[in-house]
Nucleic acid binder design. Structure first.
Lengths: 326, 326
DNA sequence: GCGTCCGTAGGAAGCGCTTTCATGTGATGA
DNA sequence: TCATCACATGAAAGCGCTTCCTACGGACGC
């Protein structure tokens, strides 16, 4: 079932079929009708490979995740896919996590898409520069601007400041930040904001390195809470750490929200259902994905040639784990 | 940068370059070395469209989700992507949720992949039959067997029976099942198993229709718990409903696990962190995805031509929401 | 020493589409 | 009435690759 069959059936040339189908050049109404009728009868759908080869386009976008675990990424993907497909593009996903050669995988992916979205620290900067230099539109999400690539991120600074101030209002004195600010600019920003917010009230928080999963949260929190100078607030770099910390606090018999305040970041589903419910910061995940797709599309279609850098607001979500509210 | 450039550089014909690169026919060692050197120097990577057109293959798999929300699907996708890429295939995702014409989207997708995985009720049976009749390998996940398609699912029957018996052991008498068994065979299976498990102890549960989200869970549970014949156990078709039900119980001052038992299904992250922690059934999500990729691959490569139907075991995860354990 | 065969390599024909270029048609103006 | 032109259309040339078919040597057997 090729364009030749359709052409034969409609009694026209293949060029006319192509033109009638994609409207790239005027076709007489009667002819177009014949072509469309033939297409309908034969159930013709153009071969993607043929189109892609001749038109030098893929009608597909890629998106690269460090891993896909957790609700964070699923939401981003959902927003991305929805918008991309509305713009007529398929979506190819790639998770670099646990892959032996992420760079090569990304390069391969780059060959079959018209543009690429990269989340976080999936590949080194020089690879991104290589891709953009090659002419491939690239959007980075949750990662600092790099080269000619566009960028989309959630601005955590003001929410982090608000969180710091809010905690100060609860009367906390010894605040520990759990996470690794040096590993990610986003986390560094959170740390900075919290520090500023607390600083206004004369409180100087400390950083305790912690991996971004629940088990690490439990381990590090347990260690902190058993120490000499027990913190009265644990500000965690994400919700997983915070949920793990809540378990640790319960373990040693401390009341979360009373003896120790614990906060997270992301507002995953479990945050709302934890008891006490977790005070955290909500990120517009789905919007992040949708925006990335849009920004990318502008580049692909050539509607824009200068880099665009978007920053979305985040919201402090106050619940009970930071202390009781009247 | 095409195969012609490489051929010229290496001083051979393009056919030889192709053979050297894909090993489809013997090439003298010296020649192969020259070709590989040229490829290396020129940084040549074969055009995907060209390959795909000539070789009549896409080196890509599709996966179709009803939607991507929730940890369930993210995990499936993760397992799928990991295995598919290990098998040398890219992954195209499609979420039918909120789409005006899912069938057409799936048909489009079918044109650019070598095989397709369909999750749940994304498209009607006749579309699947059409696709398989067309010769496209299809695997359905969490959906009853259909036509010539392979299938992969989690077997919930024994876990559901175990759940029913466990609840009976807690001494519950009036059990309500929240969900819509008629809408999904998987849920029907859960209902059947629970009913059988309880039936052994002379308890006859009832079904209360409920959508599969948290808000519906809260609403339906609130209504049930305020009724005349207040149930002392709410068996929910998934964790979201159950988490919503916990909120409803708290709202009316009932102690979950004491005054009323509540159970879920899926073991999402929030289930573990809810208080009381949710008794639920764990599904091997990631394995489900990985298995689907494998089953699909066998068909694509032609290693198997008869349908394969896999069923994975699920585990009852007993926590506190069904009652206190010593 | 000559014919045969195998291993190797190149030419060329597609794969299904888009697009350029050339052509034919009827309508228009002089 | 004839040249001109806009419009519609078809033929054909790619797009970059795979693979069939053919051809060329050199090694082998007789």
């Amino acid at each position: 079932m090729t364009i030749y069959d359709v052409a034969a059936r409609a009694g026209v040339g293949i060029a006319t079929v192509s033109r009638a189908l994609r409207g790239s050049a005027p076709v007489a109404d009667a002819t177009r009708a014949k072509v469309l009728a033939a297409v309908e009868e034969l159930g013709f759908r153009p071969s993607h490979a043929g189109t892609s080869l001749a038109a030098r386009t893929h009608a597909a976008n890629g998106i690269v995740f460090p891993d896909l675990s957790g609700p964070y990424y699923a939401e981003v993907l959902l927003g991305y896919e929805e918008t991309a497909s509305r713009l007529g593009r398929s979506v190819l996903v790639l998770a670099t996590h646990g892959r032996d050669d992420p760079v090569s995988s990304v390069r391969d992916l780059a060959l079959r898409v018209d543009g690429l979205v990269l989340l976080g620290r999936t590949v080194p900067d020089h690879v991104i520069e290589e891709l953009t230099a090659f002419g491939l539109p690239v959007v980075v999400v949750a990662r600092p601007e790099v080269g000619a690539a566009d960028s989309v991120r959630a601005d955590g600074l003001s929410a982090a400041r608000a969180l710091g101030e809010h905690l100060a209002g609860h009367g906390v004195r010894r605040v520990a930040f759990l996470g690794a600010p040096e590993e990610s600019p986003d986390v560094a920003e959170r740390w900075r904001g919290v520090r500023e917010g607390l600083g206004k009230h004369g409180i100087e928080p400390t950083v305790t390195p912690c991996l971004f999963d629940e088990a690490s949260g439990t381990r590090v929190a347990a260690w902190l809470l058993a120490g000499e100078e027990r913190p009265d607030a644990l500000v965690c770099a994400n919700d997983e750490i915070a949920l793990g910390a809540i378990l640790a606090a319960e373990e040693v018999g401390l009341r979360v929200g009373v003896d120790v305040a614990i906060t997270g970041w992301d507002d995953v589903m479990a945050a709302r259902h934890a008891r006490p419910a977790l005070t955290t910061v909500r990120q517009p995940m789905r919007t992040l994905g949708a925006l990335a797709a849009e920004v990318l599309d502008q580049r692909i279609t050539g509607h824009r040639t200068t880099p665009r850098h978007e920053s979305l607001a985040t919201d402090l979500v106050v619940r009970d784990s930071c202390g009781t509210h009247p």
